[in-house]
Design a protein around this nucleic acid. Structure first.
Ligand SMILES: [Zn+2]
Ligand SMILES: [Zn+2]
Ligand SMILES: [Zn+2]
Ligand SMILES: [Zn+2]
Lengths: 144, 144
DNA sequence: GTTAGACCCCGTAGTCACTATGGGGTTGAG
DNA sequence: CTCAACCCCATAGTGACTACGGGGTCTAAC
């Protein structure tokens, strides 16, 4: 069993955890490899390539479904790459939207945090910003 | 039952779904209200305020655990707001890190997407960028 | 009075991409 | 032979909901 590409060695080679590799197999994104006499998984170089592809795409934020589709498309090497481009561009759009959302969020957090004069909770601008505008302090406090 | 603040009205008033309100109650972040004869939840104004606080904090990206802590701190109104500030600043740091990660990601997606000449999959720069550098095309293709 | 529809109840399972736990079998070196 | 390191599998947990299924309740029109 010295030259066999075990799950541990594949994990090491791709920077993936063993559990994640088994999870990919169960998810159907990484094909089931052959087994040794002792029922250990025995991977081929093709598995290493495929797993590297998956990990790289995941690093770039593609969902597992998108990765599946990219892998499927990459099998049909003579076809137009338009479908590939579509997936990538859609993903980029989502990333741009997330960035824009987070930037607005940061602006708001900055505004809230910077107005706090560091007194008591009663005067805290952060708590105040979170509380509903018409929360009468006498009754109907935020505490239910 | 005309003036009772039912779960549906509370949902309407706060822009929350009924299921989410029940989920908040089960999570222990929104206290269990009284029940009517027909076993319907009957909310007080304090519930409305508390739920508004929760929704606002969630909009700002605080986790439910952070919201719980913010609510706990906001009960002790004579205390220093330092702990509140800590939570908010920690959250802001996390948001900044996410923005920075997504910006690098977008840069890389731009680089990958813009090099594609829109030919066949065999020539697609996107697929190429995802494939491992030393994937010999003859054998050990990305297809396992 | 009854029936239709809108509302409410509860528990459970599903989402996403893993991660963790537990209890066992296999391998390789000393 | 023993022991650690590795591997197997199934199940449950994460966060913050969302969806589903199978019922009970309320109101108003007929
Ligand atoms: Zn402060
Ligand atoms: Zn403060
Ligand atoms: Zn193209
Ligand atoms: Zn392309």
């Amino acid at each position: 069993m010295s030259k066999v590409l075990t799950i541990g060695r594949l994990a090491e080679a791709t920077g993936t955890s063993v559990e994640t590799i088994r999870f990919y197999e169960k998810s159907g994104i990484l094909p089931s490899p052959a087994r040794t006499d002792g029922n250990y998984r025995s991977y081929e170089p093709a598995h290493l390539n495929r797993l590297s592809f998956i990990r790289r795409a995941r690093e770039l934020g593609f969902s597992l479904d998108q990765v599946k589709e990219l892998l499927r498309l990459s099998d049909d090497r003579s076809q137009s790459c338009a479908a590939v481009d579509d997936i990538a561009k859609l993903h980029r759009t989502e990333v741009e939207r997330k960035i824009s959302d987070l930037l607005s969020l940061k602006t708001e957090l900055d505004r809230i945090i910077d107005t706090c004069r560091c007194g008591t909770v009663a005067d805290c601008r952060i708590i105040e910003s979170l509380s509903p505008a018409d929360a009468a302090r006498s009754e109907g406090d935020v505490t239910a």
